[in-house]
Design a protein around this nucleic acid. Structure first.
Lengths: 327, 327
DNA sequence: TTGTATGCGTTATCAG
DNA sequence: CTGATAACGCATACAA
């Protein structure tokens, strides 16, 4: 800036005002304004955003800390949030806690020091305490996907709607009795999903374990061993469902007799499966939009009290399902 | 810092030296050192990393600009790179160009101004010119996955090895005739893959288009319409292969007669598929390691001339394939 | 061993 | 309309 001030025989302040644009630059004579712009271009001037942020205490940068960026679901979420934020003039600083609580608190500690304007968090932590411990109380925070007790600025899917839509869809093709592979009951979303399904159907068998592929496999093994014949198998999570499918030897059973499947999250390639499959999926674009709508007011001077947002869910069916319902 | 200087009756520089740690702090008396640390903790001092970077011209932050973070392949790559960099004491600023050339140049322009120490890039651009146009010549850059003419600091997979491994694997299960869905021929990796497969097999049909799911669908539609019966379908890209699978109505065809599939990149959940599937995959961990090994020297004062790194590839098979080869 | 003074690149305040 | 000057928070050369 001092270079271009010298070149144009003006002062650094004038240069700053011109380059600031907007109302401030209008108060500078057209002549010098053009001189400055010309010199800036000629010298290849690039503002130092660190210095600017240091001075203005604004960086136009929002951090997003996700629990696992290798998970395509979060990849899509991050991608959409970034797009939305970019439209509002913010850059996204994307970080990954990799399902590691230690990494999460490290980032929670580090990010505010890097001069971010706000934080969007897919939390691993379960208590508000950790947040308060690491984050300055003034930093706007939006919690996504997994509500945290006591944090009002949160965006998540309507878990009850999700489970009920799935139940509706299964009921529609005549399902009455199910067998379930459940994730850990201490995780609220798994518990709630299981509760609702239990209300809506007769549960012939339920198998609980960590939400991994192996649990689904073990569940299916047990169901087969016990000779359980439900109208549908349901997993409270994508990995559990896939595990069950792993153990289901489709050619051996014979395709006509296959029970249906109910799944949370989008099952890849479900059109390749011969039995009816209904997937209850969380609306990623809807969540991303809601995040930005929740966040923007918090960035304004007189921030209103935030209120949790709940996003409607969607269903997805495979061809075999649609063939059965006739459309 | 001035607060804690006042509390401890010392000066800001003393506080700075103590908090800097390492050799500098050793030259301060143990007494005052402890006083300072105590006060820092008591006052909840957090260094302002913007100010520090402004002064030292180092941010310990590396930017990674990927072409599509919603693509799980890049998600995994980003995740692994972040882990490696974190171990070396660097934070990762992850950005997404979302397959959009305009977004890419915006970021290319913006990132250096944010005070990053280096840039890792999965480029959309094909010419070195754009890089030179936006990036300061002093900024260390590593190009990943897609080599750019004239850029030596690059890390990529061995494309010839990749295609030949896939061909070997298909030949092993008796494949002689294939039908292909090809990505754009002007993209070097797609072209090279197609060339090698054409050398190794009889190509009954080939369909070219942008590397999107829709192209694979269109390809399969055409193959079916023309009554083409290959021993295997091959897509030169994950999305092309998935698109072909979308259109393949397995129940209608009958599982015994299904052709095999050859795929580049890891097809998710390929164990759900009844036909043999061979995937030629790029070693993500290997690439991520190479990126860091390529980058670290560039961050040192007397950077040696970088040399392009080529990483070996891997194969992955589904159960149906392994059953056919006997393990 | 420690304090003083200066500067990193910007913006903001206050004169004029 | 414009120019000095201070300040953002920190690190460091130079003194003491």
């Amino acid at each position: 800036m001092s270079d271009i001030a010298r070149e144009t025989s003006t002062s650094v302040s004038t240069v700053s005002r011109v380059l600031a644009g907007g109302a401030v630059s209008k108060r500078i004579s057209k002549e010098t304004r053009e001189k400055v712009h010309e010199a800036a271009k000629r010298l290849g001037y690039r503002p130092n955003l660190l210095a600017r942020s240091l001075r203005t205490r604004r960086s136009n940068t929002v951090a997003l800390l996700v629990s696992d960026i290798a998970n395509p679901w979060f990849g899509q979420l991050a991608s959409t949030i970034e797009k939305n934020l970019h439209d509002k003039g913010y850059s996204l600083f994307l970080c990954n806690s990799a399902e590691d609580l230690k990494r999460e608190s490290e980032y929670l500690h580090l990010l505010p020091q890097k001069g971010i304007d706000a934080l969007i968090l897919v939390p691993l932590l379960k208590s508000k305490k950790v947040l308060q411990q690491h984050l300055p109380p003034t930093l706007p925070v939006v919690v996504v996907d997994r509500p945290v007790q006591g944090v009002n600025s949160s965006v998540s899917s309507d878990q009850d709607m999700l489970a009920n839509q799935l139940a509706d869809s299964l009921a529609k093709i005549g399902v009455k009795k199910i067998a379930m592979a459940n994730g850990p009951a201490h995780v609220s979303s798994h518990r709630r999903r299981a509760e609702i399904l239990t209300q809506r159907f007769e549960v012939l068998a339920a198998f609980e374990g960590p939400s991994k592929r192996e649990t689904g496999q073990a569940a299916m093994k047990e169901f087969v061993a016990k000779g359980i014949k439900p109208d549908a198998f349901v997993g409270t999570n994508l990995f559990l469902t896939i595990g069950m499918l792993d153990e289901l030897n489709i050619p051996a059973i014979g395709q006509q007799m296959l029970p249906a499947f109910g799944c949370f999250d989008q099952l890849p390639f479900h059109d390749l499966l011969p039995m009816p499959v209904a997937c209850a999926i969380q609306d990623i674009a809807g969540l991303a939009d809601a995040v930005v709508r929740e966040l923007m007011p918090l960035l304004q001077p007189n921030a209103p009290e935030p209120v949790p947002m709940v996003v409607p869910t969607l269903m997805s069916y495979n061809r075999a399902y649609l063939a059965k319902t006739g459309g």
